[in-house]
Amino acid sequence: MSQAAWRNISIGVSGFIVLGLGALVIANPGKIFFSWTFFFEVLIGGLLAGTLYSLVALGFVLIFKASGVFNFAQGAMTLFAALSLVRLIEITNSILLSMALTVVIMMALAYVIERLVLRPLVNQDVIIMFMATIGMTFLIDGFGQLVWGSDVYPLNLGIPQDPFEVQGVLLNQFDLVAGAVAALLVAVLAVFFQKTRIGRALRAVADDNQAALSVGIPLRHIWFIVWTVSGLVALVAGIMWGTKSGVQFSLALIALKALPVLILGGLTSIPGAIIGGLIVGAGEKLAEVFIGPLFGGAIENWFAYVLALLFLLFRPQGLFGEKIIERV
């Protein structure tokens, strides 16, 4: 079928969905409570929760850009990092020492992955690399639980969790901290990528790895660095999610939540990962609160995927998918 035909069909389908929703809203005026304060409260809460999705998606984007590998194990890495941190804090009783040790562990993990997975599989098809990361997911999950245990571990780094009010809008301190941390992390990464020698080399590899090789940039070092960086991003994401809901196996599943974020934002774009996360976070909270009651609730769990599906139909490269420079 031609592309135009697909387009018409998808326009039809989404028009139908919008009309249907509109009809539902009009037919059920009593069910939904709406006020602007409440709207902003939900919106801001959603945006801040969305930064956590952004963090997970960021890890994917970093690795995908530098090595063209879609790292299915990002969620497992997030869980593994958080688990290591929680258990090390129990053992050492020192948050700082445990952080440092966890960083070392994530570097070791990056090294092992480069040595045992990436290096032997270099130049293989992307699908083979993807399968390899699926394998890694199970290994990392299994290994993490074997070493650190598989209970639910509360994580408390002293981040305040109290709600407070601004102009009648109720906010949570933790969400604000999470937002600030995500913003800081992105700023640090941006400076690292734009201004440092290694960052420049990472971008060079992402652009054309053969050419990078030809000027003497050793791909192995670069892969190690980029997997380490995304391991650290996983650690930050793991800390945030772990603080919010305890460190437990379900953390590994948030990788699945990152998929719609990636589809929205584009696989190769760091700003895309951030904004995609915000849209998904805000969108699903708003949908849950204001449309959810019409469906009997619980649409938060699948809203992001519907959104992603619409994006796949209309803008498969995502909002910020890197412009492909065509001229030679």
Partner: peptide
């Protein structure tokens, strides 16, 4: 080596 087809880093 300067590769055939130039191979600059396009986004740099």
């Amino acid at each position: 080596q300067v590769m055939e087809g130039r191979h600059c880093f396009p986004h740099l």
